[in-house]
Amino acid sequence: MSNTNKANEAYEKNEKNEITESKKAGGADIIKAENISFTYDGGGSEEKVEALKNISFSVKEGSFTAILGRNGSGKSTLAKLLCMVLTPDGGRLTVDGVDVTSDETTEEDIYEARKNVGMVFQNPDNQIVATIVEEDVAFGPENLGIEPAVIRRRVDEALDIVGMRKYARHSASRLSGGQKQRVAIAGTIAMRRRCIIFDESTAMLDPIGRREVMDSIVRLNRDEGITVIMITHYMDEASLADRVIVMDGGEIVMDGAPSEIFVRAEELWQCGLDVPQTTELLWRMRKAGLDVPLDAFGERECAEAIEKALEKAAKI
């Protein structure tokens, strides 16, 4: 084994340890935003648009956060700030301990900080760069200058995580939308991103494709300890997260566990959002005088909650 190979191996080991250790420690903040704001100046001629107004929040390493909000609520701008494509106009943004808004931070520091955060976009056809699946997944690590043998291992691992190993040598153009998105996710995993931001990554997929991608997202958070920030318009997807942030008019208007957020159905409707169909049914039954909880999101849990309440009301 060559020296570089050894070095790479040690590097790999370190990375893995780092992730598990910080997870064990209960999760340090991988992202910390303090009063960040962002305004699009519209190139001078247009009116200015204040997309984000003094947002403060932090994201713990290993957590799964869903961000909801109507079109124009500022959620995509927030995503661009978090992956450092845009820089906040004001406030302080720290990614993995690096203050990307400080004047003392160098280009290199930001470059290093960027290595921690990956992004998966909406359109499956816009983010595949190679013709063969495994080459596409290897593209990122290759550009990081990683040893070929290590790349090989990372690509295989990443494809396993998203359940696409058997398509490794397939032509990427002939995959379904859901499969393409999973290849894109594998690409970010192979780059050892510790935090992945999904910007409506299931919006263009059919029901099966959506389920495949959601399964992969849940798995890489739960089993691999990767921090997930997911922007979505689908309430059933958001209910899988351990935290839901609701944005409206460039501000955070709600922040809590799905069970705390979705029970506030009226407020969500006012923000142009929806609740999962299960919650809406429970909400309607409650309006009809049945004593049901609102936070049974799963279909079975919802049915059981209704059965219990009917029993209690001596209807069955």
């Binding site: 999962p276 169909q277 279909e299 049915a303 059981e304 059965e307 069955i316």
Partner: peptide, 14 residues
């Protein structure tokens, strides 16, 4: 999703 709730209700005898 709501159709699945109806299936689950049916299993519970509702």
């Amino acid at each position: 999703g709501i159709t699945k709730v109806a299936y689950e209700l049916q299993k519970l005898g509702i």
